[in-house]
Write a protein that binds this DNA or RNA. Structure first.
Lengths: 169, 169
DNA sequence: GATTTTATGTCAGTCATGTTGACATATTTA
DNA sequence: TAAATATGTCAACATGACTGACATAAAATC
């Protein structure tokens, strides 16, 4: 039923139009929502002369204390030069500490300091308010759908290895 | 039921933990999905020496042919100086044309040329493949939930007017 | 034990995209 | 006529990415 081939041309065109329209609206919603969501923490970060790159590093170090530099590079998918600058600043500001890996002493394990954790918590609290409200208003089924679609939008397969990023010449 | 105040402390803490965990996973999904989604068109844009800013302008001009510069600024929420640079390049490359507004001759109405529309279509086709697959795999209910949550994440109220952007000193 | 690979850091330069501030011009509105 | 609006433009700067090249220490392999 509703076999697209069985539909007369004008209606099929109309269906295709709606399909494209629906997808474009999805793309636009995605763009606007993401922009509004991430821009929220900027003011707080700017107070300490930081930007979004600092936020992302703080976030993922807080999420996995003891994460190595290489792992963090893999998560963020940026070059080590980019990350290095950010990490250096976070360490200089006393928000992050690096310790030598206990098994592999080449590794630098990253952890938030107390003040780093405090800043991350303040940033998370801001974003939590927004996302919690969106989740609450939309309801659990909608949240499940949100997660499901986001999962489908992710890259599948190998993350494209980038020069200078991780274990690559 | 499930009044949080009636739950003994350890379980309440556990629930709160799950709640935070759930929200963090949502934030991360959002970050990863958005990054993967928008990065896809970069290679094609780079061939012509363009970036994401060009893509966004092309996209919204294609979406509303005859859009004014001021309207586009309102959609993108960037400064006119940023947009100006991008528009100038798009016009120079023959992808966009500007025509004087028929009623208000101060306005510059923006439209895609044939090759501009062709490029936009190529870019949209790339993204359509990804989002259509995600929508199809997730199902209509999930898509509805996705849209619902995204709507809730948007800024409410006045878009924060930014200096130099639109009608402001 | 010597060699290679890996994890990390660093210097130097470039690019894309955003910002602020100031000012110019044409056109519409009051 | 005067003020407000839509647009454009010059200049300077910040952020966060990038490439390429090279350095060091430690682990893994031959």
């Amino acid at each position: 039923m509703t076999d697209i081939k069985s539909i007369p041309a004008p209606q099929a065109a109309s269906l295709l139009f709606l399909r494209e329209e629906e997808l474009r609206e999805g793309i636009e919603s995605f763009f606007f929502a993401y922009r509004d969501f991430v821009s929220e923490a900027d003011a707080l970060l700017a107070e300490s002369g930081m930007g979004r790159a600092h936020h992302r590093a703080l976030y993922f170090i807080g999420r996995k204390p003891g994460i190595t530099v290489g792992e963090l590079l893999g998560v963020l998918r940026i070059t080590k030069q980019s990350l290095s600058r950010v990490l250096k600043e976070l360490v200089a500001m006393g928000l992050v500490v690096q310790t030598q890996g206990p098994e592999d002493r080449r590794q630098r394990l990253l952890r938030l300091t107390q003040s780093g954790a405090a800043l991350e918590a303040r940033l998370f609290t801001m974003q939590r308010a927004r996302i919690a409200k969106a989740f609450r208003d939309a309801g659990p089924d909608a949240v499940a759908g949100f997660r499901k679609v986001l999962g489908g939008l992710r890259d599948r397969g190998d993350p494209p290895k980038r020069q200078n990023a991780g274990a690559r010449s």
